[in-house]
Measured scan of single mutants.
Amino acid sequence: MQIFVKTATGKTITLEVEPSDTIENVKAKIQDKEGIPPDQQRLAFAGKQLEDGRTLSDYNIQKESTLHLALR
């Protein structure tokens, strides 16, 4: 499925993911596309910060959802 990640600079990244993917996997995909190390990424959805060990389906993130990326 496709999801979107909006960066602090307003850029939107499109990612191909599975509901079973962990947040860690998603951060690795962002690193592949943007070169941002996962340990510098903070992802949020619906106002909640997402934890590495959880999956997209844990957070009820569905196709075409938009996550927000902040850098630490």
Results as ranks from 00 to 15, higher is better:
R54T: 09
N25E: 11
K48Y: 14
G47I: 02
I36S: 04
E34C: 04
I30Y: 03
K6S: 07
I23G: 02
L43V: 03
V17T: 06
A44H: 09
L56D: 00
P38N: 11
T22I: 07
R42Y: 11
Q62H: 13
D39Q: 08
T66K: 05
P38F: 11
K6L: 15
L71Q: 12
E18W: 11
V17W: 03
T22P: 11
E18Q: 09
I23E: 01
V17G: 02
G53E: 09
K27D: 00
A46H: 15
T12F: 15
V5G: 01
V5Y: 03
E34F: 13
I61C: 02
S20E: 08
F4D: 03
L71M: 08
V5T: 02
A46V: 06
Q40C: 05
N25I: 09
E18R: 09
L15Q: 01
L56Q: 00
L56V: 06
N25V: 10
L67F: 03
A46E: 15
E64F: 07
E64H: 15
E16P: 05
S20C: 05
L69Y: 02
L67H: 01
L50C: 03
E16Q: 07
A44D: 13
S20W: 10
S65M: 12
V26I: 15
K33D: 04
D39W: 15
G53V: 12
T22V: 13
V26K: 00
M1E: 02
V26H: 00
G10F: 05
D32C: 05
L67P: 01
I30T: 02
E51C: 05
R72N: 11
S20V: 12
K63G: 14
A8E: 13
S57Q: 14
Q31V: 05
P37L: 11
I3Y: 01
S57A: 12
T22S: 08
D39P: 12
V17L: 06
A44C: 05
L15P: 00
K6D: 14
D21N: 07
D21C: 04
E18V: 13
Q2C: 05
N60K: 07
A28K: 13
Q41E: 01
D32R: 07
E51P: 03
A70G: 10
V26G: 00
L56P: 01
K6I: 15
K6Q: 11
P19E: 13
L69S: 02
L43Q: 00
V26S: 01
I23R: 01
S65D: 11
D58L: 03
N25H: 10
I3D: 00
S20K: 06
T14W: 09
Q2I: 13
K11W: 14
K33I: 15
S20D: 14
V17P: 01
A28M: 10
G10K: 06
L56F: 03
K48R: 08
I3R: 00
G35W: 04
Q2K: 15
T14N: 11
T12E: 06
D39Y: 08
F45R: 03
T14V: 10
M1W: 12
S65Y: 14
L43M: 03
T55C: 04
P37C: 05
I61R: 00
Y59L: 05
L67W: 02
Q49D: 12
P38I: 09
H68E: 07
D52P: 07
A28E: 10
M1V: 06
K27G: 01
T22E: 04
T14E: 11
Q41D: 01
V26D: 00
G47R: 04
L50N: 00
F4M: 05
L67N: 01
E51A: 09
Q2H: 14
P37W: 05
R72F: 13
P38A: 11
Y59Q: 03
D58M: 06
D58Q: 10
S57Y: 12
L67E: 01
L50S: 01
T9M: 12
Q2T: 09
N25K: 07
Q40H: 13
E18C: 04
N25W: 10
Q49F: 11
I36K: 03
I61H: 00
G35Y: 04
I61E: 00
E18T: 14
N60I: 04
D39E: 08
K48N: 13
L56I: 10
P37V: 07
M1T: 03
K29M: 09
I36V: 06
A46N: 13
R72E: 14
E18A: 08
K33C: 04
R54N: 12
L69P: 01
R72I: 13
R42G: 05
S20I: 07
E34A: 10
R54H: 10
T14L: 08
M1C: 03
T14D: 12
R72H: 06
Q62M: 12
V5R: 00
K6E: 09
Q41T: 04
R54S: 07
R54C: 05
L69V: 06
T55L: 11
Q49H: 14
L15E: 01
K33T: 10
E51D: 08
D32F: 15
F4G: 03
Q49I: 09
L50A: 02
L43H: 01
Q31A: 14
K33F: 09
E18G: 07
I3P: 00
Q62G: 09
N60S: 11
A46Y: 09
Q49L: 08
P19Q: 07
T9S: 10
D21L: 14
K63T: 15
L43T: 01
V26E: 00
I3N: 00
Q49T: 11
S57E: 13
T9C: 06
K6A: 07
A28H: 08
A44G: 09
V17S: 03
L15A: 02
G10T: 05
E51G: 04
R72P: 11
T22W: 12
A46F: 15
L71I: 08
I13G: 01
S57F: 11
E64P: 03
K29R: 10
T12I: 15
K63L: 10
V5L: 05
P37G: 06
R42L: 14
D21M: 12
E51Q: 14
P19V: 14
K11V: 11
T55H: 07
H68F: 07
T9P: 12
P37I: 07
T55N: 05
P19D: 13
L15H: 00
T14F: 07
F4Q: 05
T66W: 12
L67S: 01
D58W: 13
H68N: 07
